[in-house]
């Protein structure tokens, strides 16, 4: 199939499964620091870091400044997790750490040794999407898709924590995830659907 034959539905499937369309990552709100260039000159001593991501061990040599988000995106090429703000404010980078949702842009990768990290790429069981991924497609719960992998990871945790009892509760407990396209109504509906599905608490 040539790329122009890809239907909107297939695009949505791809986005919900891997956040894969915007693999470039910095398309939207990527912060550019003028000071970053200066500091490249004085690179600190790299560290050996063992990370456990989606059930697999990875030995990496990292600059200590590397965040968990940059480690998964730039070193492991798992580009589903997105960098929106890089400052903890948007939730696009949400992953699970030992089953709990965290903002990967606020964690230094070298301090994540011994933790079990799950990213959006680790959510589906083979070809079978997680019920929340399926619900996002069913409910058309995104437009541009940039926030989607973070929304899904946070939503999975929200359901597992038992905080998806009502639309109001979902809105409160999903408040760490912003959607610039304003797809909130559909996101809430998708989380409600998945919370009601029998197998919703599997995976992650």
């Amino acid at each position: 199939m040539s790329s122009d034959e890809i239907t909107r539905r297939e695009v949505l499937v791809l986005t919900a499964a891997t956040g894969g369309l915007l693999a470039g990552g910095q398309l939207m709100w990527g912060p550019v620091s003028p000071a970053a260039a200066q500091d490249a000159a004085s690179t600190p001593t790299p560290l050996e870091v063992m990370l456990r991501i989606n059930g697999k061990e990875h030995r990496l040599t990292l600059d200590p400044r590397t965040t968990l988000l940059d480690a998964v995106r730039e070193h492991l090429h798992l580009t589903g997790s997105k960098k929106g703000c890089g400052l903890g404010q948007c939730g696009a980078c949400t992953v699970l750490m030992d089953g709990k949702r965290v903002k990967s842009c606020l964690s230094l990768a070298a301090l994540m040794e011994g933790r079990e990290i799950t990213t959006i790429e680790g959510l589906a069981q083979g070809e079978v999407l997680h019920p929340l991924q399926a619900a996002f497609i069913e409910r058309d719960a995104f437009q541009c898709g940039y926030c989607t992998s973070g929304q899904i990871m946070a939503g999975v945790a929200c359901i597992n924590e038992g905080h998806a009892g009502s639309p109001e509760e979902i809105r409160e407990w999903m408040s760490g995830n912003l959607c610039r396209c304003g797809a909130y109504d559909h996101i809430v509906a998708a989380i409600q659907d998945a919370a009601a599905a029998p197998s919703a608490t599997q995976g992650g």
């Binding site: 939730g91 965290v102 903002k103």
Partner: peptide
């Protein structure tokens, strides 16, 4: 305070 993610960290 903050968000569920930040509160976990």
């Amino acid at each position: 305070s903050a968000s569920p993610q930040v509160r976990n960290q």
